[in-house]
């Protein structure tokens, strides 16, 4: 479904993505792991069009989208969350979700009807808010919420776009462990044909979620396989998993 071919990204002499050939299948539950500075977030930025690649291409359903702007890729079904919350901090939770839903429904540019009277947008936003157990905070501004709750709003915004490919950049970071099941529950309710790629340091969550894992080290793919294969891979354990699993 989403594929990269020879994807490279340089910042001057620094290579942050090196010949990445990656494939995310339809309906995949795929995790991308690696030590800090491995280039995981950069890879997501390349997939979503935040950064242009130095070489190589990004294909969605076989179509080259490398030159498409970020907003155009979103329209084609690629949605993401950010490692550090990127929300509309002065707006309420509901307004945040409504903005995403409005854009998906193509009414974000509508000038005549009050946003508060768009039943389709409001109903959809309310459903997502309920799904992520944010109901009691729906009318609170983002700046009034604890960080963990804000992370859930990040997820709600991405889900509001009803993507075909969902890229989650450390979605559980900052969410209290008692609430991380809300995140997994939300992902579990997604239609099975949506491909989900998750970057996460919480190995417990990764091994519960992923059906396939890619290990990225120094901007290049180091290993790829099922969770069992990755857990059994000695080299992976030595460069990354050993410390993560022991920790």
């Amino acid at each position: 479904m989403l594929e990269t071919k020879g994807l490279c990204k340089n910042f001057g002499a620094l290579e942050v993505a090196r010949e990445v050939n990656f494939r995310l299948e339809r309906g995949a539950r795929h995790a991308l792991i690696g030590p800090n500075g491995a280039g995981k977030t950069t890879f997501i930025n390349l997939l979503t069009g935040v950064l242009p690649p130095s070489r190589g291409s990004v294909l969605l359903e076989g179509e080259d989208v490398t030159l498409l702007a970020q907003a155009r890729r979103v329209k084609r079904g690629i949605a993401r969350t950010f490692q550090i919350n990127q929300l509309f901090r002065g707006l309420t939770v509901q307004e945040n979700v409504c903005i995403a839903v409005s854009e998906r429904l193509g009414v974000g540019g509508s000038m005549l009807r009050a946003a508060g009277r768009r039943a389709d947008v409001l109903d959809e936003a309310a459903r997502l808010i309920d799904m992520l157990k944010l109901g009691q905070d729906a009318d609170r501004r983002i700046i009034e919420l604890p960080y963990g709750r804000q992370r859930l709003v990040e997820i709600a915004l991405a889900l509001g776009l009803q993507p075909r490919v969902l890229l989650l950049d450390e979605p559980a970071a900052g969410i209290p462990s008692a609430e991380s099941h809300i995140l997994l529950d939300a992902i579990a309710t997604l239609p099975k044909d949506i491909a989900v790629l998750i970057i996460e340091h919480d190995m417990d969550l990764v091994f519960r979620f992923a059906e396939r894992i890619t290990v990225l080290v120094s901007g290049a793919i180091f290993a790829e396989g099922t969770p069992a294969e990755i857990a059994a891979n000695r080299e992976v354990r030595s460069v990354y998993l050993g410390s993560a699993l022991d920790g």
Partner: peptide
């Protein structure tokens, strides 16, 4: 409020 997020929800900013 957040230009980066507006791009990420697909808005023609």
């Amino acid at each position: 409020e957040n230009l980066l997020r507006m791009h990420a929800v697909g808005a023609p900013v």
